[in-house]
Design a protein around this nucleic acid. Structure first.
Lengths: 219, 219
DNA sequence: GCTCCTTATGCGTATCCTGCTCGTCGAGGA
DNA sequence: TCCTCGACGAGCAGGATACGCATAAGGAGC
């Protein structure tokens, strides 16, 4: 899961980033509105967390820029002010959710997960694929009912596949979402991770689509 | 827009209903958990607003019942309690958003709008052409209802044709799209691919337009 | 120390292109 | 209308290639 975090507070930004990374997310943290607008338009993210009070460019303007460019990634907006007009402006510009500071980081994570789950077209908090189940709110996998222990990268790959079960996920998409920004295309690390995943959950579950990517077989 | 509103407060319920109707929503207001579970499972709504403190049946149980029945309508949960565990339980049961009483009705309306907007973005129809169907989100083809196995280049060609079904796709356009820029014009590789495709899906489906390109016959 | 991630190598195979011949289409003229 | 000729596309098969997998070794981080 790759998240774009736009937060200029030098204390809060890294704190959120750490919490998200603890939840196995790949996080790109930017403090500037210009960078945020650019990254959001060009890179592939599963969701964005956007602070409204930014230097350089207003958060709302950033959001408008994304939407204007046709980006429909889920956006969770943060604000220090509790102002009503702020919320109105945020939603009008296309925000999906809203959180007022101060907040519990756990709540942010939960809301983010709910957003991503919904954006993937799933309402069910529990996703299944054969013997595999994925609890979206907590982000835990189970295999045949037993907790499945995965490393961070394994988790990112498998959750991507799970969120779009049955769909072909392109190699490049996977690389972009799994690695933070710097995806190295000529490296076989993705194959190695997939290989280890297959060893853990059974080779049949992850299907290779030669020349394109991988697919989690539905069931 | 049709909304299911589950709220037992005799004052708040009608107030929310009125506000939603002012926004041109069709609102069904129920005060009882049993009715709520039943309506949510049988009727078609664009979204639901669900109060957690209900007589008869717990709100969480209602939500679980909907999700258990495969209902994936967006659900916004209301609660009087500000307890953290409440939120966790709500999200775990499959809620999409959460609002703590007291709140401004306008905020409820806006959050609901955001939910519906995002949920609506996923209705993408299946593309069909004769016995062939293409599911764009998952990127998979089916022939007579059976999954069709294609190589990377075959897939690119066929999806190009499918996305502009009925139109003539020029050779050069196809070459550009299939070979991403470095297309070799004096080579018959495209013909070879088309030939293999015809062998897989039936020769009649892809029509040759001499001197220009190919056309996927519509149906 | 351990776990985890990356890189490097070799190998088997699906996939793709080349180069060829043959069939077919269509324009132009009688 | 019919015929002829040139150009375009189809089909085939061989070999080259790139793709993905397994495995092991090297390092980084906790």
């Amino acid at each position: 899961m790759r998240i774009l975090l736009v937060e200029d507070d030098r204390d809060l930004g890294p704190r959120i980033a750490r919490a998200l990374r603890d939840e196995r997310c790949a996080v790109d943290l930017v403090a500037d509105g210009i960078d945020a607008a650019h990254l959001g338009e060009t890179e592939q993210y599963d969701a964005a967390v956007l602070d409204l009070g930014l230097p350089g460019q207003d958060g709302i303007a950033v959001l408008r820029a994304w939407r204007g460019a046709g980006r429909d990634l889920p956006v969770l907006v943060l604000t220090a002010r509790d102002g009503w007009s702020d919320k109105v402006a945020g939603f009008k510009a296309g925000a999906d959710d809203y959180l007022v500071k101060p907040f519990r980081v756990e709540e942010l994570v939960m809301r983010l997960r709910a957003l991503v789950r919904r954006a993937a077209g799933h309402a069910q908090p529990l996703l299944r694929a054969g013997p595999l189940s994925f609890d979206a709110p907590t982000g835990t996998f189970e295999l045949d009912g037993l907790p499945l222990k995965l490393t961070a990268l394994e988790w990112r790959v498998l959750s991507q596949l799970m969120l779009r079960k049955g769909a072909v996920i392109e190699r490049l998409d996977l690389l972009e979402k799994v690695y933070e920004g710097d995806a190295d295309t000529d490296s076989n690390s993705l194959e190695v991770i997939v290989g280890r995943l297959r060893k853990k959950i059974g080779a049949a579950l992850i299907e290779t689509v030669r020349g394109r990517g991988y697919r989690l077989v539905g069931a």
